[in-house]
């Protein structure tokens, strides 16, 4: 028997590999998250606005530079922590959450906020109570309300037809994710006019489905668990369903689930392990809480998309959820 063979009795690393389908190191997880985002990113660049690629590049570089700077300031090994990919993931998520035409310097400020204020002030990877990308999003939308709601729509055929610009002569519209558009029109028209867009723009739906696909792949690869996304979608769907029963002018359930940040958030934001709950039951509660809060902010708040704020509020509730969730010891 060779030494290689004997190693099987001592090497915990070999045991890890033997359970390979379920086990992977943290840096690998981060890479897989980025991989799962790729189809959505490609479709986004092709259908909506290619500037998103520029935004992604800037955000990732800025996030990595900020991370390196902080690690250097904190006198920690710089290279090993850049390799774990968490800063890059934060940059990617932020760049995908903001409008593609956001000025670069605003995006860089966002990355700085995410890495410095949201992550390293609390102790770096694994210690941040709030989702860094969502903190940055909140800071940006509060600070730059004009550029942060400047969504392009020229490439969105359904929206063009619906808004009376089939030739695509307009360059851009402000506040035009399907959700914003719905809100805007629901206020000025009555329920039965075709003009109110009973379905969100096709392009956005296609991209939302790409996020869904990437999320399902992550589920299948067991990078994420189903608890938080399913709880989020169910609670959000239920809330919107009840709302349409009560008031016919409320946002239809299809737009609520396929529009806005819903699917992107369900699979890539609420599944963030660090700032979310860590147990199955805790994740169900966390996801459901985000769903209800998102609905409340969308329906009664003044912001076009309440998802980021809902996530941040539930992040604050995670220690409580952790504390309440006692293990059922076998």
């Amino acid at each position: 028997m060779s030494e290689q063979h004997t190693r099987r009795a001592v090497d915990i690393g070999l045991l890890r590999q033997s359970t390979g389908a379920t086990w992977r190191a943290t840096p690998v997880i981060m890479r897989q998250v980025i991989l799962a985002l790729l189809p959505g990113i490609v479709l986004y660049a092709y259908l909506i606005d290619a500037r998103v690629l520029l935004g992604l590049t800037i955000a990732v570089i800025a996030a990595l530079l900020f991370e390196a700077m902080v690690m250097w300031l904190r006198k920690r090994p710089v290279t090993s922590r850049l390799g774990d990919g968490s800063a890059a993931v934060t940059g990617v998520l932020l760049a995908l959450s903001v409008p593609p035409g956001l000025p670069a310097w605003q995006l860089i400020i966002g990355c700085g906020v995410a890495i410095l204020l949201a992550k390293h002030v609390f102790g770096g990877l694994g210690h941040n109570p709030f989702n860094p990308a969502m903190v940055a999003f909140a800071v940006l939308i509060v600070s730059f309300p004009v550029t942060m709601t400047d969504w392009p729509m020229t490439a969105d055929p359904v929206a063009r037809v619906a808004l009376g610009d089939p030739a695509g002569t307009w360059d851009a519209m402000t506040s035009q994710t399907p959700l914003d558009r719905y809100r805007a029109h629901a206020r000025i028209t009555t329920g039965d006019t075709v003009f109110t867009l009973s379905s969100p723009g096709t392009a956005w739906v296609v991209i939302a489905l790409a996020w869904l696909g990437g999320g399902l792949w992550l589920l299948w690869m067991r990078v994420i668990t189903w608890h938080a996304p399913v709880a989020l979608l169910v609670s959000l769907g239920t809330c919107h369903g009840l709302a349409t029963l009560i008031s016919p002018t409320a946002m239809p359930i299809g737009i609520a689930l396929l529009g806005g940040a819903t699917l992107f958030g369900a699979f890539f934001i609420v599944t963030d392990p660090v700032s979310g709950a860590a147990t199955p039951r805790g994740r169900l509660l966390f996801g459901a809480g985000v769903g209800v809060l998102t609905f409340l902010i969308r329906q009664f708040g003044s912001w076009p998309e309440g998802f980021a704020f809902a996530v941040l509020i539930m992040n604050a509730a995670v220690p409580l959820i952790d504390r309440l969730d006692r293990p059922r010891v076998r």
């Binding site: 400020i109 002030v121 509060v142 600070s143 309300p145």
Partner: peptide, 19 residues
């Protein structure tokens, strides 16, 4: 003025900047 970080004027910004 529209390039300013409005957050800094808001109360949370005061806490963050003081911190």
């Amino acid at each position: 003025a529209e390039h300013g970080l409005v957050l800094a004027i808001l109360p949370p910004g005061a806490f963050i900047l003081l911190g």
